[in-house]
């Protein structure tokens, strides 16, 4: 167990577009008595899909500002968003390892009244589940096993790659999410292109191409026998849940595939009342799966 006190970095997509994910995160933190706090002063991570593509050095400085905000409170950063995780962890690793770069960044940060000493660790919320809480504790906490449920899992790119910076799981054959789902009693399938991007990253340049990628993945998951999709990233959730109807427009099998955020299933399994979790805010109806589980 880590001794850290965590500064919770929720990002912007979860609180604004997918607040039910925030509920599931907060319920999980409370259930496992994790020492996590909301702190003032954070800004955009910034979004690794936009700002660094115009100026990656500016992105590093903005990211360092967030790290400095947590450092001043003596806290490490815990984030449930893959994009924020890639940006903040990538920056933290580069700035820890490269003193010259840190000095360069601090020259600019001084104009905002911040300084980053290079001490903050950044952890993904899902990483906390398997590293700090552990598969065993999770499995032991289950009172309503999700038996007879078969799902596809989609980890998302930005918790894994670039692996030399993020170093969370095998970047080509990750197993953590499969194991986390199985710890709740459900089964996972494997499908072709499991490691491919959800499509979200190419949205700013080509919306139709992004939807095509999403549609193909959904089809492959259903073909492999999945009754639902389990994921851990808000950007992937926007593609797979909010955009699902559009993504299925050009594929043959238009059956909807319910989408769950892993901590929602975890909460159901440990006995959090489903009414608390906001399932009605999903775009694709999850009732058929809930009816089976509850």
């Amino acid at each position: 167990m880590s001794n850290s006190s965590w500064a919770l970095y929720m990002g912007c997509v979860i609180p604004n577009r997918l607040p039910y994910m925030e509920v599931a995160v907060r319920e999980t933190l409370q259930y496992f008595e994790i020492d996590a706090h909301d702190i003032d002063g954070f800004s955009c991570c910034p979004n690794p899909l936009t700002l660094p593509h115009i100026d990656h050095h500016a992105a590093l400085v903005i990211s360092a500002r967030n790290l400095a905000v947590a450092e001043k409170q003596g806290m490490d950063i815990l984030t449930p968003c893959n994009g924020c995780f890639e940006m903040l962890k990538g920056s933290a690793v580069c700035l820890h390892d490269d003193k010259e770069l840190r000095e360069e960044v601090n020259t600019i940060l001084a104009q905002t009244g911040h300084e980053y000493k290079g001490t903050v660790k950044v952890k993904h919320f899902i990483q906390l589940l398997f590293e700090d809480i552990g598969f065993g504790t999770i499995a032991e906490s289950v009172i309503y096993p999700l038996k007879d449920l078969t799902v596809a899992v989609h980890v998302g790119c930005h918790i894994l790659r670039p692996s030399n910076l993020l170093n969370v799981d095998d970047a080509q054959r990750p197993t953590i999410l499969h194991q986390l789902v199985r710890a709740l009693g459900a089964k996972t399938v494997q499908f072709p292109d499991e490691m491919d991007c959800c499509g979200y990253g190419t949205r700013p340049a080509d919306r139709d191409l992004a939807l095509k990628m999403t549609g193909i993945k959904l089809e492959n998951m259903k073909r492999a026998g999945a009754e639902a999709l389990v994921l851990i990233c808000p950007a992937c959730t926007l593609q797979f849940d909010l955009m699902q109807r559009l993504a299925l427009r050009d594929v043959e099998d238009k059956t909807p595939l319910p989408v769950f955020y892993y901590p929602e299933l975890l909460n159901l399994a440990v006995g959090t009342p489903p009414q608390k979790l906001g399932f009605e805010q999903h775009r694709v109806k999850v009732d058929p799966v809930l009816a089976k589980l509850l």
């Binding site: 790119c157 790659r161 670039p162 080509q172 991007c197 990628m213």
Partner: peptide, 16 residues
């Protein structure tokens, strides 16, 4: 080239 921006930043190329 507009196609320069199609990269979805999944880093599969770098990783493989």
């Amino acid at each position: 080239e507009p196609t320069l921006w199609l990269c979805t930043s999944c880093h599969a190329c770098l990783e493989h």
